[in-house]
Write a protein that binds this DNA or RNA. Structure first.
Lengths: 231, 231
DNA sequence: TCCAAACGTTGCTCTGAAACAAACTCCCGG
DNA sequence: CCGGGAGTTTGTTTCAGAGCAACGTTTGGA
C-alpha cells in the first residue's frame, strides 16, 4: 500500500475542519483500494465491518428482491462517505454497492467510527447530514415511483444523474459514468425496452444523444419539462 | 398544561437508561398535545423547530407531489420519536405527519436536541437506530414499488400495518387505526378502486374482513403467500 | 482477424390496472 | 328523523407499457 497523500481528504466536508496532522492520522489508518467497473464493494446483508469514502469514480447502490429483480436506489459520487451502517447501529449493510465506473475508495474498520465522531469536530454532523439528504432523496424517488408515469420517471432519473455527475461536452452535458438502458430501467422500475424507445424518441427530438453506455443531454430544459409537467 | 407523569417515558428505548430525576427533567421541558384524527402535527417544508415523541395513537407520514398526488411513506406508532429533522441537520421537515387516529404526543424545541444527545446516554444511539430502520424500510418499499405488481404491494402494505399495529380480535388480527381504501392506495401507488376490488376478493376468499375504515386480517398466512410469491 | 457476448433497437400482441361512471351505505350533525 | 357527505362497491372502457421475438451493432478477447 503506497503512502496516501493528505490532499486526498483536504476540502472534503467530513474532514474540512481538521488540522493536517489529524488528516495524516486518519489516512494512516485507512485502506485504499481500486475497484474495476462492475465490482462489488460490499453486499447487502453482509457484516458491516468497514465504512468507506469514495475518492474517485461512481457507485451504484442497489437492492434486490428474492425474485431476482433489482433496483438502483442511488448513486455515490466522489467525496461521499458510504457504507456508513455503523452510524445507524446496523451490523449488516442494507444494500449492495457496485462500481459503476472504475473507482477508488478508502475504508476504515467500524471500530474507528466512534473514535472519529468523538475526536473530529464536524465528522458526525457531516455524516448525519449526508444521511438526511439520502433519506430525503429516497423519499422523493419513492413518491415519484408511486405517482408518476414511466416517461417522467425516466426523465427525472436522467436529470438526477446529470445533476450529480454531469460534465460539459461540446454538444451538451454528459453523464460521467457508463449507463446502460438496463441500468436506467433499474432506476425507474420499467423495462430496458421502454427506456430504449424513450431515448430513441428523445434523440429524434434533439433532447439527448446516446450511444452504448454513454448519454449526453443536449437539451436539459426540455427534459425538465418532461419530468415536471402535470398530466 | 397538567403535570406529566414519569411513567409515560419509563421503558421507552430513548430514555430507558435514565434515572427518574432525569426523566422528570426531560418531562418538565416537554409540551404535550392531543391531535384529532386527520390533524397535521407538522407539514413538509415548514421550519423544523420542534421534535416529537408519540405517546398514543398512530401517525401517517406523507409526501405530496406538486401535481397534488400524495403517498404515505410510513406510519409512526406509540413510543417512537418523530420529526427528528434536527438529528439530520435539516431546518425544515421533509414530510408531513397526520394523526391517523386520535393521538397524543410530546414535543421539545430543537435546541434541546443537542442537550439530550450530550447528557443522556443512549438517546443519540436510539435515535439513529430508529433512523436506520426507517431508511431500510423505505428502501424496501421503494424496491417493492419498482418491481412488484399491485396485488403484492397491497398485500405487503396490509402485512406491514398488521405487523406494526395489529391487535388480536376474535376473528383475526385487526389494524389498530382507521384505514380507508384511499389510504391503502396512497401507500401502494394505485387507486382506491383497485384496492376495493382486491379487498372484496380477499374477503370472499376468507383472507380479510373489512368494513368502513376497519380491516381485520383473518388469514395472515395466505396474505404472506400473496405478497411473497414469485410470479 | 474473427467470434461471441453484451448492448441496443424495433415491431407486435396482450393484459393489468387506470379512468370513467354510477350507485349504494354508513355515519354524523342539525 | 332526515339530509348530506364521506367512504365503498361494481361495471365498463381504454390504453400504457410489459412481454415476446427477432435482429442489428459494438467491443474486447482468443
Amino acid at each position: 500500500m503506497p503512502k496516501l497523500d493528505e490532499s486526498l481528504l483536504i476540502g472534503l466536508p467530513p474532514f474540512s475542519l481538521l488540522a493536517r496532522s489529524q488528516i495524516r492520522e486518519i489516512l494512516d489508518q485507512a485502506v485504499s483500494r481500486r475497484y474495476d467497473e462492475g465490482t462489488a464493494i460490499f453486499r447487502e446483508g453482509h457484516d458491516a465491518d468497514r465504512f468507506f469514502l469514495l475518492l474517485d469514480g461512481y457507485l451504484r447502490v442497489i437492492r434486490s428482491t428474492p425474485g431476482g429483480d433489482q433496483i438502483i436506489v442511488l448513486h455515490i459520487s466522489p467525496g461521499q462517505l458510504f457504507g456508513i451502517a455503523p452510524a445507524l447501529q446496523r451490523d449488516t449493510y442494507p444494500a449492495t454497492s457496485i462500481a459503476a465506473a472504475e473507482s477508488l475508495a478508502l475504508s476504515w474498520p467500524v471500530r474507528l467510527w466512534s473514535e472519529f465522531t468523538a475526536n473530529y469536530p464536524g465528522f458526525a454532523t457531516e455524516s448525519y447530514k449526508t444521511l438526511g439528504q439520502r433519506l430525503g432523496q429516497i423519499q422523493e424517488t419513492l413518491t415519484e415511483m408511486a405517482t408518476q408515469a414511466v416517461e417522467k420517471r425516466v426523465a427525472s432519473a436522467l436529470l438526477r444523474m446529470v445533476h450529480q455527475s454531469g460534465r460539459k461536452v461540446d454538444t451538451g452535458i454528459e453523464i460521467a459514468f457508463p449507463v446502460t438502458r438496463q441500468n436506467i430501467s433499474d432506476m425507474t422500475g420499467t423495462t430496458l425496452h421502454t427506456v430504449s424507445r424513450l431515448l430513441s424518441a428523445w434523440q429524434k427530438d434533439g433532447i439527448v444523444e446516446s450511444s452504448r453506455k454513454r448519454i449526453v443531454v443536449t437539451d436539459p430544459h426540455r427534459l425538465v419539462v418532461l419530468s415536471d409537467l402535470q398530466g
